[in-house]
Amino acid sequence: MSDRNFVLEVEDLGVSFDGFKAVDGFNFYLNRNSVHVIIGPNGAGKTTVLDLICGKTRATSGSIRFKDRELRGTREYKIVRLGVGRKFQNPSIYENLTVLENLELSHPTGRGVFGCLFFRRTPEIMGKCLEIAEQIGLADKLDTEGGILSHGQKQWLEIGMLLMQNPEVIMLDEPVAGMSVRERQETSQLIRKISQNRSVIVIEHDMEFVKEIADRVTVMHMGKVISEGSMETVQNDPKVIEVYIGH
């Protein structure tokens, strides 16, 4: 199974909370430079999968290999440093710092204690911040405090903070929840653009949006994968139809 084209290989992943199997026998292969969307009804275990990959929750079985390195049992900050970034469901930014400071704090230079203490804002770091700010459409808001941005802008800022780390895998948990139609379009463009040189895992409910961005779709139900493939394949899968309409 170890194909060089997969940047992330998740095999037989499982976790149980006090006997309740939230994720069970989960297999997942992520291609390089592609957008892979996980869909499924509420409580299917989608967010838990992201939690397991980024180390927030400890898996009880299975393996998570990132470029042939086992992530299971690795501490969160080390997983991030290896190149796996994660955005939370609710926008999670530093409200009392400016957009620029938010981005700067996410720059990978000087993340150790002493690195932080002797950190200086170099032109390269500044350049990187400006580049990312441009990309997420917040270039004219550099000195705005994070807390007063609109909901959509907060989501973009958090994506920008991930991009600052230049990760190979980005995981986005419901990036367009609560966005206006226009903001959704811009977000889908942003996701297409950032997936040109990295892989993106997205959890989403909005099927229109999924159609726009997905290279590949995995459908989860009750902690298990019930279908996988392109959007059309999945949409025509009777099992998927049953889960979504059946009950």
Binding site: E76, Y77, V80, G85, Y94, L105, G112, C116, F119
Partner: peptide
């Protein structure tokens, strides 16, 4: 007033975000 100071405040308010920006929160 250094980046470390900002990280401390950020940790106080948004612990998970700091951790998932690659900082070793426990060490800090």
């Amino acid at each position: 007033n250094t980046r470390f100071g900002r990280v401390l405040m950020a940790m106080r308010d948004r612990e998970d975000r700091v951790r998932f920006s690659g900082y070793d929160v426990a060490m800090c």
